[in-house]
Design a protein around this nucleic acid. Structure first.
Length: 689
DNA sequence: ACTCCTCGAGTTCT
DNA sequence: CTCGAGGAGT
């Protein structure tokens, strides 16, 4: 490539060059991501992006709204239907050391109020992708990827052509059953596939896991059929009738039905055996035919599993003891500055591409300027990085001996690189923010991305990239414009990379979301400190958009009744109240809101509170409980929608009094708070469950 | 005033 | 997933 030297570019030339690069990079992204047919090598592609970044570094003001540096990759290919899982597919707590491992089971013991160690089942953790298979009357009827745990993608057609997936179960079997397993590609098959792919002039996959994922997520099942994939089954989801008392028996059932279960799985009589097992597997790791990234240990007794239940999305009865994260050294070429939705300036390390655990890492967040100072990082340094917790790369530190001469400490700019407004760092805060608000193109883009994101309007077919494009060409200036795009369907269809079908899909995706519940609407506005949860609190309290708006407008007056009422909502304190008031005091925001409400309908949230009489109640446990431990009771109550606190106050609805209760029971009596015996509580919990 | 916990924000790569 | 800040409770 014989392009002009960046240092000699005039501003106009730079502008033209950025436009060209945006176009070219978008073109290659599309080839790579959607058509699986790259025309250039990774290195050439990286060079294009690096050139774009370098020009932007010299002319920050010229950065385009659709700049490639503002995004990574393309929106996921459409084409698979969504399907909900019968029982959610959960994630697992991780341990990286023997201490973390035993602490986990100590916590479980405390939860159950038990002294004895647990029998465990240990299974190598395959580095593939999880798949849920549904069988009815013994026949495979659905295969679903994990997705977000609640809803995944329907890949049934592909599962039907994978030899390792049983198409029917050997009897006897329950009427309906969900089986979870890990799809993977053996290392040798991965290498052979990549040889074939490169021989055919294609790019190949970065690692076996991506190869397995790519093979499973083919739109054409014939391609999947040509790939060699394995499956190890490891768990059950929703089942029409109980099939075992222990996890170890589960595994046996799975084998009986015709599944492969990992042959290195073992039953351990107590936790003390885990360390030796872990060491044994670590030693075997290199010799295994497939990649593993640790070992999963599950409490064998299903009755105990049920009692332990879940904390958030993680079971309290299983943990993944991971092998140490892989580390690598590379050069920190440059520190870029990104501008987020709230104006936060985030420094990002641009790294010489390096392979860490099978993934080519090119960037890593540096969080904030304090972090950079703490690690004493400078552009040009050689740094040690790791992929922590599997995914997100982290810069661990730099190697002083390898620092080249002539480097300088890094400081965040005091003006926004996207819009030039002042960037301030409030005292006692870590983050420096652009003060440009809606005049900042970077903030506008990120707000729109948030607006259409999953928890908000959730508009299908409108991703980061198309937003940037439609913004750059002037079709979208504010959120409400999205709902006026239908008038421009023909213009959009005529754009490069679109077409009548995708334009129509986009318009349909938008129309499908013209009505949405209040909580989502509030969340979509992207008010600082108001996330999905706080939005739900507000929606539950105010019920309708009109009531909320009226209250918020009044709450802009400090000391008003509405402001006090706002601060009295449990979970909303002064900071959030101020943030809401600040939003509603700004005429621009009111205009934006009015404009938006001309286009969309907001439905009241139906919190026809879960049937449970405990929903929304606050309760306190005191004294010694005999049937459950305190944490177990707490978890149980929370599962029924209640809040559990420690002290009895005017806000407390019930106090559950165990044996030898003391001052709290007395205080409850004084305050006239309802008192329940442990038996009454157990009845209540049982009946509401 | 201090501690524990929850929530929000930002981020990687496929 | 991780970090920092806010909120609730002691």
């Amino acid at each position: 490539m014989s392009e002009p030297d960046i240092d000699t570019l005039t501003e106009d030339e730079a502008k033209a060059e950025l436009a060209r690069l945006a176009r070219v990079i978008a073109h290659h992204d599309r080839l790579y991501n959607q058509e699986d047919a790259p025309e250039i090598t990774d290195a050439e592609y990286d060079a294009l992006r690096a050139r774009n970044a370098a020009i932007e570094a010299r002319f920050p003001a010229l950065r385009r709204a659709d700049s490639p540096s503002l995004r990574v990759g393309a929106p996921a290919a459409q084409g698979f239907a969504k399907r909900a899982h019968g029982a959610p597919m959960l994630s697992l707590a991780n341990a990286f050391s023997a201490e973390e491992f035993s602490r986990f089971f100590d916590t479980a013991r405390r939860f159950l109020g038990r002294d004895a160690p647990f029998s465990l089942v240990a299974e190598p953790k395959i580095d593939g992708l999880s798949l849920s298979l549904t069988y009815e009357a013994g026949a495979l009827v659905a295969a679903t990827t994990r997705g977000d745990g609640a809803v995944g993608e329907d890949v049934t057609d592909n599962a039907r052509v994978i030899d390792a997936v049983p198409q029917s179960l050997r009897p006897p079997f329950p009427a309906r059953i969900e089986i979870r397993g890990e799809i993977f590609m053996a290392k040798a098959d991965f290498l052979a596939l990549n040889d074939a792919e490169t021989a055919a002039g294609r790019r190949g996959f970065a690692n076996p896991r991506n190869a397995a994922a790519g093979s499973l997520r083919q739109l054409d099942p014939r391609v999947t059929a040509g790939r060699r994939l394995g499956l190890f089954a490891y768990a059950l989801g929703d089942v029409s009738q109980p099939v075992a008392d222990s996890h170890w028996q589960y595994l046996q059932r799975l084998r009986d039905w015709g599944f492969s279960v990992n042959p290195y799985s073992e039953r351990l009589t107590d936790e003390a055996e885990a360390a030796a097992f872990q060491a044994g597997i670590a030693e075997r790791r290199g010799g295994l035919a497939y990649d593993i990234d640790g070992v999963v240990y599950k409490i064998d007794d299903l009755a105990l599993q049920r009692r332990l239940g879940f904390a958030g999305r993680e079971p309290r009865w299983a943990i993944a003891w991971k092998f140490p994260a892989e580390q690598a050294m590379t050069v920190l070429r440059q520190i870029d500055v990104q501008v987020g939705r709230t104006g936060a300036l985030t420094p990002v390390a641009i790294l010489a591409p390096v392979n860490v655990g099978g993934v080519l890492v090119t960037r890593a967040t540096l969080h904030n300027e304090d972090e950079i100072a703490r690690l004493d990082l400078r552009e040009g340094d050689t740094v040690r990085i790791e992929r922590a917790g599997d995914v997100i790369p982290r810069v661990l530190g730099m190697i002083p001996d390898l620092r080249p001469p002539g480097t300088a400490p890094f400081h965040l700019p005091d003006h926004c690189p996207a819009c030039g407004s002042a960037a301030m760092r409030p005292p006692n805060e870590v983050v420096r923010r652009c003060t440009g608000g809606l005049i900042c193109p970077a903030q506008r883009q990120e707000r729109l991305v948030h607006f259409v994101s999953r928890g908000a309007f959730d508009i299908d077919g409108l991703g980061e990239r198309s937003l940037a494009e439609l913004q750059a060409c002037g079709l979208i200036k504010s959120p409400a414009d999205i709902f006026r795009l239908h008038a421009h369907e023909a213009d959009i269809a005529a754009r490069e990379g679109w077409g009548t079908v995708s334009a129509r899909n986009l318009v349909h995706g938008i129309e499908a979301r013209r009505t949405l519940p209040l909580a989502r609407f509030i969340y979509a506005l992207g008010i600082r400190r108001v996330g999905a949860n706080t939005a739900k609190l507000l929606a539950r309290h105010y019920r309708t958009i009109d009531a909320w708006r009226a209250a918020m407008r009044e709450a802009t007056i400090i000391g008003s009744d509405a402001r006090l009422a706002l601060g009295n909502i449990l979970g909303i304190g002064p900071a959030i109240a101020t943030e809401l008031a600040d939003f509603f005091i700004e005429p621009r925001n009111i205009a934006l809101l009015d404009d938006l409400l001309r286009e969309v309908r907001v439905s009241p949230d139906d919190f026809v509170a879960s049937a449970s009489r405990l929903a929304g109640k606050t309760l306190v446990f005191t004294g010694t409980l005999t049937h459950m431990t305190r944490p177990e009771a707490k978890a149980r109550a929370e599962a029924l929608g209640a809040r559990v606190t420690e002290s009895v106050t005017g806000k407390t609805d019930f106090v559950v009094v165990g044996a030898d209760a003391g001052s709290k029971a007395r205080r409850a009596a004084e305050l006239g708070v309802a008192i329940l015996s442990e038996e009454a509580w157990l009845d209540l919990a049982r009946n509401e469950a």
